[in-house]
């Protein structure tokens, strides 16, 4: 039994410890916002936060997150209470097919958490780990820069509340 914190809630799973976190979150905990793109840590569609750092969860065994804090796109913001990056994404019509965007936003949120005012080059370098086949790069960069320059970040990736499960 592996226990970890998922979007502020303590959860337990008896999935095989080698199962990548992505599949535990999607199939066992039914949070479908994080996507499967490559299964090899190459595209970033599966990006979540592990104690506030962006990680590729399609290659991260769930055993590695025991006792850790995991945040997914669902924990970053909701339609009623969006993270500033999500608001920027909507206002600037960033997504096209949208499949990679959860991962893009999770990477961007981790970037801004660590470096609230990145240069354009820093954004490009950091976000190069996330593929967008629709090629929304120009708008992704623009949305990140607009949030970096403007809004305050209310989101705390490390915040945890204990919930009995």
């Amino acid at each position: 039994m592996i226990e970890f914190t998922l979007n502020g809630e303590v959860v337990k799973t008896d999935d095989d410890p080698n199962t990548p976190l992505l599949w535990v979150v999607r199939d066992t905990f039914k949070l479908k916002g994080s996507k499967f793109g490559c299964g090899a840590g190459l595209c970033g569609a599966c990006t979540m936060h592990l104690d506030g750092q962006a990680v590729r969860t399609c290659i991260l065994p769930v055993s590695q997150v025991a006792g850790k804090n995991i945040t997914t796109i669902e924990g970053l913001g909701t339609p009623d209470n969006m993270h500033p990056l999500q608001t920027a994404w909507v206002e600037q019509s960033v997504p096209q097919c949208g499949y990679c965007q959860s991962g893009q936003i999770m990477s961007a949120a981790a970037l801004l958490e660590n470096n609230p005012n990145p240069s354009a080059e820093e954004v490009e370098r950091y976000m190069a780990g996330n593929i967008c086949r629709c090629g929304c790069y120009k708008r992704i960069k623009g949305a990140i820069m607009s949030v970096a320059e403007g809004a305050e970040l209310a989101y705390d990736a490390t915040a945890t509340t204990e919930v009995n499960s």
């Binding site: 669902e74 969006m82 994404w89 206002e91 019509s93 997504p95």
Partner: peptide
């Protein structure tokens, strides 16, 4: 479809 796609 922006909001749905930005919130997963």
């Amino acid at each position: 479809d922006g909001m749905q796609k930005a919130t997963g």
